[in-house]
């Protein structure tokens, strides 16, 4: 019978060991979630700032369609990876356009691109002020300026 008691105690200790493993795993999960939440808050804070671009259509999927890009005050758009907003599309020039926030409103300016920059379907010749909800077409990529 002492053998049985020993086995029961062993079983309990063993369960304790596994339980401890999961306690640790829970704590990890908690820490990961906390970091994730603070990162999200940081993102929300940056969103409440000046604006973002929603990608509506993107044949080469870079930037991926359906995603949003948080905007800084000055954003270069083009097919070179060193641009703030890198666009993968054959109809986009290396340095295609400049999207800037000046004072209270957004401006878009073509950088001498081959195929031009379009706002709501119209090709622009000089810097144009944008409103939220305006649609930008750069090459085959369509994006919308959102708050």
């Amino acid at each position: 019978m002492t053998g049985d008691i020993l086995r029961i105690l062993l079983l309990l200790l063993q369960l304790g060991f596994v339980a401890l493993l999961y306690l640790l795993l829970m704590r990890f999960a908690g820490s990961l979630l906390k970091d994730l939440r603070s990162a999200e808050q940081a993102q929300i804070a940056s969103r409440s700032g000046i604006g973002r671009l929603s990608v509506l259509e993107s044949p080469e999927d870079e930037p991926p369609a359906g995603t949003t890009i948080a905007l800084g005050p000055i954003n270069s758009i083009g097919r070179n990876v060193n641009n703030t907003i890198y666009v993968e599309d054959d109809f986009v020039s290396t340095n295609h356009a400049m999207l800037t926030f000046r004072g209270r409103s957004w401006f878009i300016e073509d950088q001498g691109s081959t195929n031009g920059t379009y706002v709501n379907g119209h090709r622009i010749e000089r810097p144009v002020a944008l409103s939220f909800g305006d649609e930008l077409t750069i090459g085959r990529v369509r994006m919308r300026l959102d708050r």
Partner: peptide, 18 residues
């Protein structure tokens, strides 16, 4: 996060020994 490990390892050794 390290605290559970401080218990975990000796517990594992004890279970093994028993």
């Amino acid at each position: 996060l390290l605290l559970p490990i401080i218990v975990l390892v000796p517990l594992g050794f004890a279970v093994t020994h028993i």
